[in-house]
Structure formats: C-alpha cells, structure tokens
Amino acid sequence: MRQFLSVVAFTLITIGCFTAYSNYGIPQIEPAPPPKEEKLDLGSMTMDQFVALGERLFNGKGTCTLCHNSLGRAPLLDTLGDVTPGRLGDARYEGEAGNVEEYLIESLVEPSAFVVEGFGKKGTNDTESPMPDVSGGGISLSEAEILAVVAYLQERGGSEVTVEIPTDVGEGDEDEEEEEELEPREAVSDPKLLVSMFMCDACHMIDGEGGDIGPDLSGIGAARDRAYLRRAILDPNADITEGFEPDQMPEDMAEQMYVSELEILVDFLAENK
C-alpha cells in the first residue's frame, strides 16, 4: 500500500509540475477570438470609415443592391441629394421628417411613407412600398448601422453628410450583441412565418404572391427535390435557373436561420407541388 501511495503521489506531483509550468512558466497569450463579421467599433472610427461601413452594409448585409440596381426594380439612389428636399413638400408624403437625414432614416425603417412613382406594390397605386423595414426581419440593421447606411447614401447622393457617428450607441450596441448571443431567438416552426421573416417573397413568387426577381416557387416541389432546394438556399449561386441573374440572392441566407428552420423551409417548398 505504501508503494501504491508513493506511486500515486509521484504521478500527481509530475502532472502538477507540468501543469504549473504551463500556467506559470510560460507567458499566457490569449489568442485572438474568432473573427466576427462586421464588428462595429464606432469609438475609433473616422467619418470616412463610417461611410465605408455604410457602403459595405449597403452592398452586403443590408441586401439593398438586390433591388436598388440598374435593373430598375427600385429607384437608383444616385441623385438623392437633389431630389430629397422636394420630397418633403410633396403632397403624397406621409412622414414626419424635417430634413434630408431624417427623411432617409425614415425611408429605411418605414418605406411606405413615400413611394416613388412607379415603384409601389402592384395594385396599390404607389401607396405601399415593396421594400421591407431594414431594422427588422432577416436584415436587422442596428441603429448605428442604419446611420452608417444613411451617411453612405448622403455621400453617394451628392449631398452633405450630416449624420454624426453615434458615440453612445457604441457601447450599448455591443452589449446588445452580447445579449443576443446569450439569448438566441426562439426557432420558428411555421414555414409561412419563415417566408415573411426572411422575406423570401420580396423576390420570389410563393403561392401567387411576391416578387419576380427570383424564380417562382409556387409548386416548386414538383420540379425540384429537397437536396436541390437545400442547396439553393445554402449556396444560392450553385445553380441559376435559366432567365435569372446570378448574385441576386443573399449568400448568407442560411447563416441567419437555424438549421431546423432551414429544414422546415425545405420541407415546405418540397411539398408545395
């Protein structure tokens, strides 16, 4: 027994030495955390960087270029500086903005406040905009991100950039992000809700409703199997249906939904015969 105990003690001491050396004998370098996409560090940003952030959001996460492009699905935004002042006095304007900056913010979160002629939803006589509220749904731009997009729009539209980089939002924003991580949203199991949440119908026709940028998905289950549909969501450019442009559908669609939700969507589409 004595031998046994001394062997145990010897083993523990040896492992203890190795552990102690690894903890105290060498410097503890904390490796960089996994890179996060679009990490906002507003505190140290210059206006140029803020505008650049807005541009990235405009082309990326905001998915704005899906419609605001040369194909004429939505107004081009190059002449905002000239056009906007007139909008505020327009009879059809329903919003409460007092200046260009407020107007632009409003148009992002409440798109129907003013619909440019010819760009409204079909059959609504330009009173309802097909554009989603960018602060919600699948886009979910934060307040600071919306301001960045506005700053970019002002610069691009040729008007003076009046937006100020939010300073107080910086800290709070990160906290929010962390909270989001701690309490992820509940997974959704209703496919219809998913379709509207991720705004599939902004581009795709589903059961007779929706846009025409992407292929009509009504009855798609008859033509495509589950594997194809899953792939089409995960990697939208893998197969492009004839007659449609590539690079139209956001590539990070699947990253925004849970895997369970992806499967529900796939099932829903596959059974939609």
Binding site: E181, P184, R185, A187, A227, Y228, R230, R231, L234, D235, A238, D239, D252, A254, E255, Q256, M257, Y258, V259, L262
Partner: peptide, 15 residues
Amino acid sequence: ATGNYGPAPKLTAAD
C-alpha cells in the same frame, strides 16, 4: 451529379 450531397451547413450559436 444531381446534388445529393448538400453543402456544409452554416451554423449559428443555437445549433
């Protein structure tokens, strides 16, 4: 060839 194997899933923390 017919795409039986899908792409790798893109996971979120909730997965």
